[in-house]
Every structure is written in structure tokens, then in C-alpha cells.
Design a protein around this nucleic acid. Structure first.
Lengths: 350, 350
DNA sequence: CTTGCAAATGACACCGGTTTCCCTTACACC
DNA sequence: GGTGTAAGGGAAACCGGTGTCATTTGCAAG
């Protein structure tokens, strides 16, 4: 490894501050870390020296003595860029001006070496904690690995996946039910559903919400109207082709995410089917896509930024002096957003 | 700051390896860092001990001795999530299994404290280097700040912004010209242009490409057909309303990015204007939106992932043993992608 | 004016590497 | 065999903080 710059950055060290203030370095350390065992006078004196010298504690040295890097890691394999980035924004909002850095590490769920890769990364970087975004947040092995490595973690999911300290959840089931109810209220009785991939908790929760709502309305569940997608645009197109081929076709389709809803819409427009007059569509996520396609999609806004902030706060609350140790919520509520992709079914078709 | 886990992680240290191999810790250090001054026998013996003990050098300790954290930072204020995430993917591809971590740090270009914030962050984290995404990559003050702090940097832009070691660029001007030529070749003579925000280099480059192409074809430049947007969907809608109100309206519109192109398309569909029969549209970026709207947008694929990888390689090539020190390119080429949003103008309108 | 005890502060080792400097070796040459 | 040179290897200092534990200080009680 080659040399870069100079080790002596000219930055004042804790020793300089100690000398300047006429105290021991340990006392300076106490001031930095907000120890309560200090005279106000001493604290003030040291703070003044820190100001005067422009001292910034060296994070590497702190990390060495502390045994962990002042870093939290976002582990994810979520394909939706907007989701990941919004979540990042939430985290950054929570850690704001602290000494913490946010590192990102995508993982490959399909690789058999995934756990080893994560272990290696955690050993090399020794972060304070990790944040897990779905779908890998649903993997219990990773949570166990973190515990074994002494790394904190918080999992984000569409349902409660862990205890309150290690989990942030949204109420997907309830919100999909609400969205579905709005279709029923508009008069729809034949409603298609595009579910997410098998094995995903979010897919299960959302489908359960759909079934809750139709059961509640006394609508018989028709398996032919449920299509299994994979959260991708293309699978939404496939769903559209499949569901519109059913006789009679559904008058409304609920998709488990916006990308698939966009795929549905694409197929409808391609075939000259008018949305929402001839077909109502609802998505999930409130991704930019939802409002950027025509007609704008009714959807469920998933509070991903807020979840990121909450998850990060749970992770770091013991390290940040200002944070109150009060209980933080586990579940954050989504909102149903009505736009232009829903209308009552056409009489001729009912 | 509270205590977490245990400092003694049970990990073997360099001392354990030294004892196991029967050499001094310095010799082990030499092996780790690939010093050439060692007997092959010694090297082999130490490597064997490292294997046997499963030794992983503690990054904090290395960082302390080294003076910098083994971390590179992505500084960005780019609003496009897909762009940022693709760039991240490229970086991660380049740093792969090395000891380096990728941290992300969004900045607020509109804040007067931006430079101070960045300075503070660099002082606190002391990363190896930073990667700058447009539009802040165009800010020379940040580059100067990095140099002053002894932090390496690489800037990414739509044009060459710095010397070869500190810059990765795309050929936007050329590609927009190519896209525009395809419209001209289809028969369009009245072409609208939606430019990016004032002060953005990318906006300037792309507009220049547009003007190159129409000048080349002998088409008079009509200021009424140029609308200034801000790269957002909504400004694309505004552009659509403005440009379609011109008499006669353009038969084709070139937008400086896909989001604005999507806004144009939205307005056209809303008004019942058929795309591409009555209006051709071309975007720029090849964001997922471009292929997820109907009709799918012709666009220019911006090699953002590849740029991320290249930029990261430039940044770290002196640190990674395997990297050849050969010259890396500065400019990466984009590709024009034809989809379904372009058709010849309708005869009645020409 | 002691004594006692808790609060405030300091001395020093330590975290786990790298660097400096010096001492062995090994070998070539005279 | 003696000596010069260069390479290999080790002891100790160092990077800049934090933890432990002993010591000093301040103040109330006796």
C-alpha cells in the first residue's frame, strides 16, 4: 500500500489541547465525551482551548480505542433505487451532524457466499451497526450473524420481524386492504391482484390485505385473478397480459408495487384500453413513477424515509448524547393516495 | 458514549500471528503489506500462520497508523435516485472485496454552509478520497478543498472538468447531436428543445449538441422552441404546455433528461396527442422511467455505472496492489437507444 | 482542626497496527 | 580468515485516543 499525503496533518491533537488548557489528556477526553464528573470551570476552560486550537478528535484513534468504527452500514438488495435512496436520506437525517458515517453495502441474496461476505465485511469494517432493508431484512441468519459479531442491527419490513429494538415496520396489510376497499366502494367486484415474489414477507402481507378486503365485501376469491409477479416492471406487463385475457377481465387491478402497476398500465395503453374508464389500477410505494406516468397512479405511500430515520435512531440512540432513551415506535403508517387511475367500472361490463 | 460489545472480540492480532510464526510483529506487518525484503521461506511461514489463525488486520489500527480511514466517500446532490444508485453500484464494483468501504454523503448545494459542512466531514472522517457527482462535481471550490485537506478526488461530469487523474466525463454534446440528427433524418424540421437548469454544465453541453445538429442541417434556431427546465418531471410538463402552445407546434421535442421527457409525454397523452404519430419525443439518461412509460422513450444511455467504476478505479489505483498503473480513459461514450417515441412527422403538418 | 468520604483529576497502560533505527546474518571479495 | 556490504529481522517508539486505577481536592461532619 502506497503512501498518501502526510501522516502529520497539522491537526492539533488531544495532547495539544491538554497542554493549552493545562490539564491532562484524560480530562480533555472527558470533555469530548460529555462526562458529568467535571467542574463547570474545567469544562469551560477545556472547551475554550478546543475552540482556540480548532481541535477535532481523530476518528481513527477513537475507533481503535473503542473497538468499532463510527460507521453504520446499510445492507440491502432492494432493486428499487428510489426506495434505497429515500431510506438513505432518512438515515442521514437521523445521524445528521454526528460523528457517524453511513456506508452502503449491497449484497447478493442469490449468492451462497452471501453470509460469508457479510461476515467478512463486518470483520473488516467493524461498524457500530447495520440497517437491513427488505428483502434481506427478512433473513434471520443475518440478524444472528450481527448478534454474534457484536454489531447492532435494525430490520425494516412490511410487518413486525423482530423485537421493538431491532425492528421498524409498516402496516402494508392494512393499507392494501384500504386501497382495495376504495375499489370496492367505487363499485368494482371483479378485482385482479398482482402479488410479489414467493417467499417475500411484503408479498404475503400485501396479498393478505387484498384477501381481507374482498372477503369482507363478500367477494369470492378467484385464483385466476391473482398473478404472481416479481416486483419488476416486466412482470407487471406479464400480469397485464394474463389478467386481461381472463373472461370476463377484471374491471380493476391492484398491484403490489408501482413498477408492476406501471407495467399493467403500459399493456393497457398499448392495447388501447382506457385507464381508468375501462380499467382501474392501483399501485403501492408512491415511487416517482406513480406520479410520472399518465394517468397518474393511485397508490399507497410507503413512509420509507421516515422508516430510515426511525431505524437509524433506534440503532444509534445509545451513542448520541442528545437522544432521549424513550421508546421509539415499531410501526409507521402508510397513506393511501388517490390520483387518476381509479374510476367506477363501466356499466356494460359489470 | 456508552459501551458496546466487548473490546476483545476474540480476533487474533498481529502479535498472535508473530508468536505463532516465531517472528516479530514487524515481519508479519511486512508480509501483510507485501514488502519485497523478505525471504520466501519467511513469507510462506507467516502466511501459513495467518491462515491457520484466521487473522484479519484490524482496520482501525491500520487507519490510525496510516493517518486516513480506508473509506471513500460519494458526495452528491444529484436528485435522480437511479443515477446515484447506479453510480454507487459502479463504485462498489471497483472496490469489490478490498478493505475499502463506501460512504455516502449528500450535500446541499443551496446552503451557504456547504463548503464548511464538507470540510468538517472530511476532517472528522478523513477518508482516502471523494467521488463527486454532478452537479456539485462542477464546483471548483470543492476540488480545491479536497486538495487542501489531502483528500483525493475524482469528478464526474458531462464534459471534461479537470485533468485526467481527477476527472471522468461523458460525451453528452455529441450524443444529443446524434439524437437530434435521428429526428432530422426522420424528416423533422421543427424541433423543440427542453434544456436543463441555468448554470449546469450538463445543460450547456446538451444544448450545444442540439444546436450543433440543427445548424448542421441548416435549420434556423428558433428561441421560441427552447424551454428552460430544471431536470424535474414537473418542468417537463411545463415545457410541454409551453411548446405545444407555439404555432405551429414542433413535430418533435428533445428533452435534456428522461424525467422531463416523461413530463412532455404526460401532457401529450393528457391532451390526446398521439405519440409518436403526432409528436416525437427523445429523452436522455436511459433511466428506468424511459422504458417504463408508454410509449417507451428513445433516449441516450448515459454510462453512469461504468463511470462510477472508472472514477473509483482512478481514485484508488495507487492503493490496490492488483491495479495496473496504466492510464485510464477520461471520456466514456454514451449510446443512443431507439424505442417507440419517434416517428416521421405527419405530412399534414410539415 | 481533624477525619472521612465523595467528587474531580491525573498517570499510565493499552487498543493493534506501522515506522524508525539498529543489530544480525549471509555472502562476496580480497 | 578478515572485512565490507546489503539484506533480513527485531526492539521500541509512535499514531491519538480511551480505560483503569490511584491520587488529589473540596467540603461536611465530628
Amino acid at each position: 500500500m502506497a503512501m498518501i499525503g502526510s501522516a502529520e496533518t497539522g491537526q492539533p491533537t488531544i495532547n495539544d489541547v491538554a497542554a493549552h488548557a493545562g490539564v491532562s489528556k484524560k480530562t480533555v477526553s472527558r470533555v469530548i465525551n460529555g462526562s458529568p464528573l467535571l467542574t463547570d470551570a474545567t469544562r469551560a476552560k477545556v472547551k475554550q482551548s478546543i475552540e482556540a486550537l480548532g481541535f477535532v478528535p481523530n476518528p481513527q484513534a477513537r475507533a481503535l480505542a473503542f473497538g468499532r468504527n463510527f460507521m453504520i452500514v446499510l445492507l440491502h438488495d432492494n432493486p428499487n433505487a428510489q426506495t434505497v435512496l429515500n431510506f438513505q436520506s432518512g438515515i442521514l437525517q437521523a445521524i445528521g451532524n454526528t460523528d457517524l458515517a453511513l456506508a452502503v453495502r449491497p449484497v447478493d441474496r442469490s449468492s451462497p457466499a452471501m453470509l460469508d461476505d457479510i461476515r467478512e465485511f463486518l470483520e473488516k469494517q467493524r461498524p457500530l451497526g447495520v440497517l437491513l432493508l427488505p428483502p434481506i431484512s427478512e433473513n434471520d441468519d443475518i440478524a444472528r450473524l450481527c448478534t454474534a459479531q457484536g454489531v447492532r442491527y435494525v430490520r425494516v419490513g412490511s410487518a413486525v420481524l423482530d423485537d421493538a429494538d431491532h425492528c421498524v415496520a409498516s402496516n402494508d396489510r392494512e393499507m392494501v386492504a384500504a386501497a382495495c376497499r376504495s375499489l370496492i366502494a367505487a363499485g368494482h367486484r371483479s378485482i385482479g391482484f398482482v402479488r410479489g415474489p414467493a417467499g417475500f414477507r411484503s408479498a404475503l402481507e400485501r396479498e393478505t390485505g387484498f384477501r381481507d378486503a374482498i372477503a369482507e365485501a363478500g367477494i369470492r376469491h378467484d385464483p385466476a385473478l391473482v398473478f404472481q409477479g416479481n416486483y419488476r416492471f416486466r412482470s407487471g406487463q406479464d400480469a397485464g397480459r394474463a389478467l386481461l385475457a381472463v373472461t370476463p377481465p377484471p374491471t380493476a387491478i391492484l398491484a403490489s408495487n408501482d413498477e408492476m402497476a406501471a407495467g399493467l398500465l403500459y399493456v393497457a395503453l398499448e392495447r388501447g384500453i382506457k385507464v381508468p374508464q375501462e380499467l382501474s389500477i392501483i399501485g403501492f410505494d408512491d415511487s416517482p413513477t406513480a406520479s410520472h406516468i399518465w394517468p397518474a397512479l393511485s397508490t399507497v405511500r410507503w413512509p420509507i424515509l421516515e422508516m430510515g430515520e426511525l431505524a437509524a435512531r433506534k440503532l444509534v440512540r445509545d451513542f448520541l448524547p442528545g437522544e432521549d432513551k424513550a421508546d421509539l415506535p415499531v410501526t409507521l403508517n402508510s397513506t393511501f393516495i388517490e390520483r387518476d387511475s381509479v374510476a367506477p367500472p363501466q356499466p356494460s361490463r359489470t
